[in-house]
Design a protein around this nucleic acid. Structure first.
Length: 200
DNA sequence: GTTATGATTTACT
DNA sequence: GTAAATCATAACG
């Protein structure tokens, strides 16, 4: 299974790219030799300086979100609520701070290791559904922010995307502070998967 | 230097 | 349904 190339992530239509990422498989080869992978089942689009829900809204540019301003195809991972590592993929062109938040995956490889990482004993959607749970199950953390998806450490393969009729959409979660932008239907999920954080 | 706050999860009542 | 956990970051003085 080949990796998706950098130009795939350089799409300037972040919302369309978010939909296209559903069904593809995210891999992580960890420093201790584990190979973890999961099929992407839920994402959200964050679209640059005009999106009030985006960290780069109004042109905000800080050490934390700097990677969003760089080239596409890199990880942007930050700590939320002091506890959760949220994983994003940078999209669009250099200078345009767009990204796609990965919110849920269905385990494909390394299920037992994921269970251990989560302190669980049996599979359940709660294992890797929800952005904080996903990062923990895949052992992704803020230290990997800025990592390109081309170095064999973290990557996404070219598993075919979901059929359009399987894609559901709705407002993004937890962005009520974003005013009218909180209502934009920029969350997408696989309507046939139970490995999602919410079904409506 | 100080303070407010979150792209959430989990455990209670 | 409500609230606590928990801290790096950003904004401000």
């Amino acid at each position: 299974m080949a990796l998706l190339p950098p130009h795939y992530f350089a799409d300037t239509d972040t919302v369309a790219l978010a939909r296209d990422l559903l069904g593809r498989v995210l891999h992580h080869a960890t420093p201790d030799g584990l190979h973890l992978a999961g099929r992407i089942t839920e994402v959200e689009a964050y679209c640059g300086t005009t999106d009030r829900a985006c960290h780069a809204w109004g042109g905000r540019r800080t050490p934390r979100n700097e990677v969003m301003y760089g080239p596409a195809g890199h990880l942007y991972i930050y700590l939320c609520y002091g506890i959760h590592h949220l994983v994003n993929i940078v999209t669009h062109t250099e200078g345009e701070p767009h990204a796609i938040l990965l919110r849920a995956i269905e385990p494909v490889l390394g299920l037992e290791h994921m269970l251990a990482l989560r302190g669980m004993t049996a599979p359940h959607p709660r294992l890797s559904s929800g952005p904080g749970s996903l990062s923990r199950a895949l052992a992704l953390h803020t230290g990997l922010s800025g990592t390109p998806l081309t170095h064999g450490q973290v990557w996404i393969d070219d598993t075919p995307a979901l059929a359009p009729q399987r894609i559901a959409s709705g407002p993004r979660i937890g962005v009520d502070y974003a005013g009218a932008d909180a209502l934009l239907p920029w969350r997408f999920w696989d309507r046939e998967s139970k490995w999602v954080s919410r079904n409506k």
